[in-house]
Design a protein around this nucleic acid. Structure first.
Lengths: 208, 208
DNA sequence: TATTGTGAAGTGGTTCACAGCT
DNA sequence: AGCTGTGAACCACTTCACAATA
């Protein structure tokens, strides 16, 4: 598969969420217009997005919802399971472990770590919290696919480095700092400060 | 100011975070290369981003860090304060109210609301939790600039509609569903599920 | 020599428009 | 007639290259 734009992947995900929200097993058909509305795009763009991966629709009819959802899950790689390790047992970590969207979509939190040794051994939303010192040793025996970083900014890069060295190939960083990783490791940032700045910009420049 | 790309605003925010992280008052100079590294861009792009708003540097020398940070705060609209209302007093809401990045950057949480009447009157990180039923009445007297939506997906759009009707002009939505608002209201999405799907895609397609 | 500022060129994502099926 | 699939046109963001300046 050729260079697919991040914006396209994002829309594919939105199309899938829309289909799943409408009932998964139903044998209804969906038009490129409906998909576009769900993904914040135009009908032509929705068709182009899908055509990058195949011809899933029927001309004159539309797309079979169930089959399309199945295709999208395959394209996005959601037809397999991922082992997720969470580093950071604070309030954000608690919110994340509680997020049902994780497990529902094949992301299984296999471990929660915290730098505060005092928290080790306690439970967070049904997960045993371990001392981050044992991260490498634990992952050596049970490698993880995705590392979620929910620690203070000052510690984020160090945690990222350790996760990568321990074999994690994808990082989701919530700390308000840009973390870098070697080529081959995917990094996504969920930076609240960035979004707020974007809103501030919009508020400051509306009408001008 | 004319049509500035969202990606540019995002980078400006990253430049500013970098400058602030290096010490605010210092009279050091920063090069477009250093800014680029912080913003995930090329030096030429950093220069172009800044040149959209003025000439802040000195040829052959670089940019004066303190003055540039000040300019960026002005450009991004961070030189004023914003009143933020948070709807959703769950774990995510707790994490958000605790996030120092909010107050440090001029975003003041003026109220926290929850749909669970039982929570009304309790305290969340020093904020009194109010029943969401009183949202409109409260905002009529003390309008807010930004509404943060941290409620279940099923309730997100209704909350967005109420916030907009109450005069809020910018929304930050954490629910895993796309919320829409009338033109003139800025909406940003912090959708964890979308980021995870992006990582799944990267993992599924690495090397191919 | 070092670095900014910026018009010009390049790249890549989006939109258009219509052929091809149902 | 209705809707998908897609090459071509379009547009916007990025990169280049170099004049201007310290």
């Amino acid at each position: 598969m050729r260079h697919v734009a991040p914006s396209t992947v994002r829309r594919l995900s939105l199309y899938l969420h829309f289909l799943e929200g409408r009932g998964n097993g139903a044998a209804w058909t969906v038009s490129s217009r409906a998909l576009a509305e769900a993904g914040g795009a135009t009908p032509a763009q929705a068709r182009k997005d899908l055509s990058l991966f195949g011809s899933f629709g029927r001309r004159g009819v539309g797309y079979p919802a169930g089959a399309l959802a199945e295709q999208l899950r395959g394209i996005l790689g959601l037809d397999r399971g991922y082992r997720v390790v969470l580093v950071g047992g604070g309030r954000l970590g608690a919110a994340l472990t509680h997020f049902e969207g994780l497990r529902d979509r094949g992301f299984a939190v296999s471990a929660v770590y915290d730098a505060d040794g005092g928290k080790a051994g306690s439970a967070l939303e049904g997960h045993l919290v371990r001392d981050v010192a044992s991260l490498e040793a634990d992952l050596a025996g049970a490698p993880a696919d995705i590392g979620v970083i929910a620690v203070p900014a000052a510690a984020a890069q160090a945690v990222a480095d350790r996760l990568v060295k321990a074999g994690v190939r994808a990082l989701l960083n919530f700390a308000p700092v840009t973390v870098t990783a070697p080529a081959g490791v995917a990094v996504k940032h969920a930076d609240l400060a960035l979004e707020l700045d974007g809103l501030a910009y919009a508020l400051a420049h509306r009408g001008s």
